[in-house]
Design a protein around this nucleic acid. Structure first.
Lengths: 204, 204
DNA sequence: CATGAATGTTCTATATATAGAACGATTGAA
DNA sequence: TTCAATCGTTCTATATATAGAACATTCATG
């Protein structure tokens, strides 16, 4: 015997509601009728109707077929946030914060600070010869990406040391104290991109 | 009467397989038994077992409850790509793909291509005077960020045109056809970062 | 006004996702 | 050895997700 409880858990329900709206939005944006999308995806149009109204609890398979037909992925459809912030932003130099290393030889311009996306930030990094930038550990599981445009840098994390020169990219875990030093004899220039772990996985 | 065809579509099947591995990985990483996770999530342990082996086709509701119990979101669980990435990666210049514009005057070096994180990519962009780079629309809701290091560029999206010069950053929606042109008389150099819409999501 | 071809909705029958129980395998302690 | 506990698997019954058909509505065009 199997007893089954109806489980309209609020979290899940909200997820389904958002999903339905997203599907509807994508479908109408492409000017597709239920029948069209049904034909393209192989999902019954009755199903699509119910999904859009959050009257059912779709299966991974149907979600996969639907998002494929809509040209996206299941993750994207589920994660899609419809805030249609149709904004364009133009930052002037004086708006961009600049950090300096303790020795005054390195400069870190924080370019990519977007309040809507906290888990990725990027910087323009320059260092005079022998300049060293010391960073304490970033939030759990962050990954730092250093792409050197000109010059030669040395990166130390924990007890490991690597060298990176112009044209190369180094990617390393930044949830330890780490430092970057200019070991060349010219000004070094690099693009640094930090990705926070929140977007990958809440740590084990 | 309802005829129903079993549809083990390869795409969907692969997604399910990946999902199963991810669930298993997260569960064991937290040292949870099937029973533990079942108790925490409210999903029958038999279901979890079948999901991990991709012998069933879970519902959005169960995925939601499971990922909640594991401390993540459905998107993250589905999007989680493959195993623990190598701790460190060092890309040489020859590993980095380079795109050229049709007129041959612009160069786009794809620096930040991480297979584990599909929602952010960045590029090193250079353009000779008058060079123009035309891009077709990116996936739904992408945002493109252009930080000019040297020179002066003009960005056209839809019918809007903006100018950006050294030190400035322009941020615009890239889900339309758009183009970037060097309107200065020296080689322009910029860092371009693209963020896909899938990532616009609060909380971790 | 018809009449048809679209649209989205509700109905109905079946395949299947799911919960719970029963099972077998492993471990550890008395 | 026993016994008990705990693991993952497999079985079974039911709730339900799904496909397909029937239905309802709009909107053309004659």
């Amino acid at each position: 015997m199997a007893r089954q409880k109806r489980t309209p858990c609020p979290e899940t329900d909200a997820l389904g509601a958002k999903l339905g709206k997203t599907i509807l939005r994508l479908r109408t944006a492409d000017r597709l009728s239920l029948g069209d999308l049904s034909g393209m995806s192989g999902v019954a149009k009755s199903m699509i109707s119910q999904i859009e109204k959050n009257e059912t609890n779709p299966t991974l398979a149907t979600l996969s077929r639907l998002s494929q037909a809509l040209g996206t992925s299941v993750e994207a459809v589920l994660g899609a946030n419809e805030e249609q912030t149709a904004l364009v932003e133009h930052s002037q130099p004086q708006d961009i914060p600049v950090l300096h290393s303790e020795d005054g030889l390195c400069k870190l311009r924080i370019i990519g600070f977007i309040d809507t996306v906290q888990w990725v930030q990027w910087y323009d990094f320059t260092a005079e010869p022998n300049g060293i930038l010391e960073s304490s550990a970033h939030p759990n599981g962050s990954i730092e990406n250093l792409s050197v445009l000109t010059g030669k840098l040395e990166v130390s994390v924990n007890n490991d040391v690597w060298q990176v020169k112009a044209g190369e990219t180094l990617r390393y875990h930044a949830d330890f104290d780490h430092s970057i030093r200019n070991i060349g004899d010219i000004t070094a220039h690099a693009t640094m991109v930090n990705i926070l772990a929140a977007s990958i996985r809440p740590q084990s």
